[in-house]
Amino acid sequence: MNPFDDLVTRATADPGVRGLVLTGSYARGLETIHSDHDVIVVMDEESRGRWETRRSAVLDEIIYTVDGLADTSLLWQRYAFRGARVLLDRLDGRIAELVELQAEPTADEAREWGREALDGVVNQFYRAAKSRREGALVAARLDEMESVSWLLTTIFSLHGRLRPYNKYLRWELDNFPLGPPWDDLPERVAADPGSLFKVVCGLAERCGHRDVLDSWGDSLDVVRATYG
């Protein structure tokens, strides 16, 4: 029996296990010969001591409590639940509900993230524009590269979504399209982040965040003189 099947068998036999959730490449149908299984084992609090998180080249066995699965404060972890598969749910659908809660931000969450990330976008391109103005092209390029995280967070947040892990960016767009002009987003953001500045600002304005841009005053003109 392989380690994944062994885990499923052991978990199913333990009444303290409340749920099993498959994440990662296997959940999304993207597995290769190098992929491991990523499985979240959801325990009741009383049984948690019988299990511990274990990671190997073939299986990551990650222990959560039900309350831990309900905690959405750890933002970087939440995209792991996008496309996840619930293998066991002994709480009459509650495990599936909590997985969806992790994977889908609320409107207020997305709005807050989008505004914060938009401010970061302008900041990075303001730095880059000033460096280009001074002829410091390497520094400018580094700032443009650093803008990628802010750009992707802004774009997906303003669409009410979590920013995908880079590995799953193409999978996300293929399965949950944003539509034009974002179809070639992975290639475009990798090749020329600055080409996205104008279109992201347009998206932000349509989403009601013009005030974030206006707060930069004349500095925004410096950015637009370089990036449109």
Score class of each variant (00 low, 15 high):
Asn2Met: 09
Phe4Gln: 02
Asp6Glu: 04
Leu7Gly: 13
Val8Gln: 07
Val8Ser: 01
Arg10Gly: 12
Thr12Glu: 11
Asp14Thr: 06
Pro15Arg: 13
Thr23Met: 13
Ala27Lys: 02
Gly29Phe: 07
Leu30Asn: 12
Leu30Asp: 08
Glu31Tyr: 02
Glu31Asn: 10
Ile33Cys: 11
Ile33Lys: 08
His34Tyr: 08
His37Met: 09
Asp38Lys: 08
Val39Gln: 04
Val39Leu: 00
Met43Cys: 06
Glu45Ala: 15
Arg48Ala: 10
Arg50Thr: 11
Arg50Asp: 15
Arg50Ile: 07
Trp51Lys: 14
Trp51Ile: 14
Arg55Lys: 14
Ser56Asp: 03
Ser56Trp: 01
Ser56Asn: 02
Ser56Glu: 07
Ala57Glu: 09
Val58Ile: 00
Asp60Trp: 01
Asp67His: 14
Gly68Ser: 04
Ala70Asp: 15
Ala70His: 11
Ser73Pro: 11
Leu75Glu: 15
Arg78Asn: 03
Tyr79Pro: 01
Ala80Gln: 13
Ala80Ser: 14
Arg85Ser: 07
Leu88Cys: 14
Leu88Gly: 03
Asp89Ala: 13
Asp89Leu: 12
Asp89Gln: 08
Gly93Gln: 05
Arg94Asn: 09
Leu98Gly: 01
Leu98Ala: 04
Val99Thr: 08
Gln102Cys: 10
Gln102Phe: 08
Ala103Gln: 01
Glu104Cys: 04
Pro105Gly: 01
Pro105Lys: 10
Pro105Asp: 06
Glu109Ile: 12
Glu109Pro: 04
Glu109Leu: 06
Arg111Asp: 07
Arg111Glu: 08
Glu112Met: 13
Glu112Val: 03
Arg115Thr: 05
Asp119Tyr: 11
Val121Gln: 01
Asn123Ser: 15
Asn123Met: 12
Phe125Lys: 00
Phe125Arg: 02
Ala128Pro: 04
Ser131Gln: 15
Ser131Trp: 13
Arg133His: 09
Glu134Gly: 14
Val138Trp: 00
Ala139Tyr: 03
Glu144Ala: 00
Glu146Pro: 03
Glu146Lys: 10
Ser147Lys: 03
Ser147Asn: 11
Ile155Cys: 01
Phe156His: 03
Ser157Glu: 00
Leu158Ala: 02
Pro164Glu: 11
Arg170Glu: 15
Trp171Glu: 14
Leu173Ser: 08
Pro177Phe: 12
Pro177Lys: 05
Leu178Glu: 04
Leu178Cys: 02
Asp184Trp: 05
Glu187Ile: 05
Ala190Thr: 14
Ala190Pro: 04
Ala191Trp: 10
Asp192Trp: 03
Pro193Asn: 08
Leu196Met: 03
Leu196Gly: 06
Lys198Leu: 08
Val200Gly: 00
Cys201Tyr: 04
Glu205Pro: 08
Gly208Gln: 05
Asp211Lys: 13
Asp211Phe: 09
Asp214Asn: 12
Asp214Pro: 10
Asp214Gly: 11
Asp218Gly: 07
Asp218Lys: 09
Ser219Trp: 12
Ser219His: 14
Asp221Trp: 02
Tyr227Lys: 03
